[in-house]
């Protein structure tokens, strides 16, 4: 177990290193991209450019620049933004993380609940009209783009029906959980639902097909011949086995979302999360900020991967000895 953990950690560090180098090279060493020109502004004269280059350390060799940036990022933790001079990068990420975590965690709970419910009922009612109806709802959910759905939700809850049905909906934004749990949930309710719609559809469809396949397995016939009730067969046998691939997919999606893939939802609902941070940094080509958020995202993806591996072994005894 210790060896497993050490190996896992080593590979995670390696992945993070590789990603940081890659991102660094993309932004600092791609031919034609000159960060100094970005910072100095349009039509800057050569003298200003040289000065900017010097003051940002851009005139030093690339490996040194990489090492310096990493030192500022991880050791002295005082990496500064290129755009807002003096603004520290890390505190901003630390501040944005709980927002993203709140959004993704809540949405995950909702989408998993809905997916399990929809997928199980559809597989259970296979052959009746309920199955295609539920699956159709799933496809609709998958096909709705988050930015469009979010805007429509905002339009309805914030403007058109805000005077009547949705008068209880607070304005866009984020309230910290520790400040006011009720307002926290209320502010996040529609972002949660919007983000969950897509994933609920995907997971429900996946779960249904897994369940249908598992219900045709020999062990289900054995269970039936044992005199086990259909409900128990569905839940204890078929569903239990169908959850294995779902869980691994969930880990990856969750990691990616916490890492910033919930960006569109955050932007649409004005949530100051990591996705929003990345989005803004990309708009201004704020390299230190991009670097930091990418490393942060990679960290969560790698972490989620490790958690999935451990969970997978817990869920599937066959994977334990491999």
């Amino acid at each position: 177990m210790l060896l497993f953990a050490v190996r896992r950690l080593a590979s995670a560090v390696l992945v993070l290193f590789a990603i940081s180098v890659l991102v660094f090279l993309i932004f600092f060493a791609t031919p034609g991209v000159d960060p100094a020109a970005r910072i100095a502004g349009r039509n800057a004269d050569p003298a200003t450019l040289a000065q900017v280059r010097h003051s940002f350390g851009l005139d030093r060799p690339i490996p040194i620049r990489y090492a310096l940036m990493m030192r500022h990022l991880f050791i002295s933790r005082d990496l500064e933004s290129f755009v807002n001079r003096g603004a520290k990068v890390i505190p901003q990420i630390v501040q944005a993380t709980p927002v993203t975590l709140s959004l993704v965690l809540g949405a995950a709970v909702i989408w998993v609940l809905f997916a399990v419910l929809m997928g199980t009922v559809a597989a259970w009612r296979r052959g009746t009209v309920a199955d295609p109806l539920i699956m159709l709802a799933g496809v609709v959910g998958i096909s709705l783009p988050v930015y469009w759905l979010g805007e429509v939700v905002n339009l309805i809850t914030q403007s058109r029906l805000h005077g009547s049905v949705f008068s209880w909906v607070p304005p866009l934004g984020y309230v910290s959980l520790t400040d006011d749990p009720g307002q926290w949930a209320l502010h996040l309710l529609f972002p949660w639902l919007t983000l969950a719609v897509l994933y609920a559809g995907i997971y429900a469809r996946l779960l249904r097909s897994e369940l249908v396949a598992n219900l045709n397995e020999d062990y289900v016939r054995t269970a039936r011949a044992k005199g086990i009730s259909e409900r128990r067969i569905l839940i204890r046998h078929a569903l239990r086995c169908s959850l294995i691939p779902i869980v691994s997919l969930f880990g990856l999606d969750f990691g990616a979302l916490v890492g910033g893939a919930a960006l569109l939802t955050e932007v649409v609902f004005g949530l100051p999360g990591v996705g929003k941070l990345t989005y803004d940094a990309l708009q201004t080509v704020d390299l230190p900020m991009i670097m930091a958020t990418v490393i942060y995202a990679a960290f969560f993806v790698v972490l989620a991967n490790a958690v999935v591996d451990v969970l997978y072994a817990r869920l599937d005894p066959r994977a334990r000895h491999a």
Binding site: Y219, T222, H237, P317
Partner: peptide, 27 residues
């Protein structure tokens, strides 16, 4: 009925299937 049949299955009449590799729930 299904309910009555469930009491017969496994208690009065048990069944063994061909492939023991897949006959048990793997988890």
């Amino acid at each position: 009925t299904d309910r009555e049949l469930r009491d017969v299955r496994g208690r009065d009449i048990a069944m063994i299937f061909q492939d023991p590799m897949t006959a048990l729930t793997p988890v």
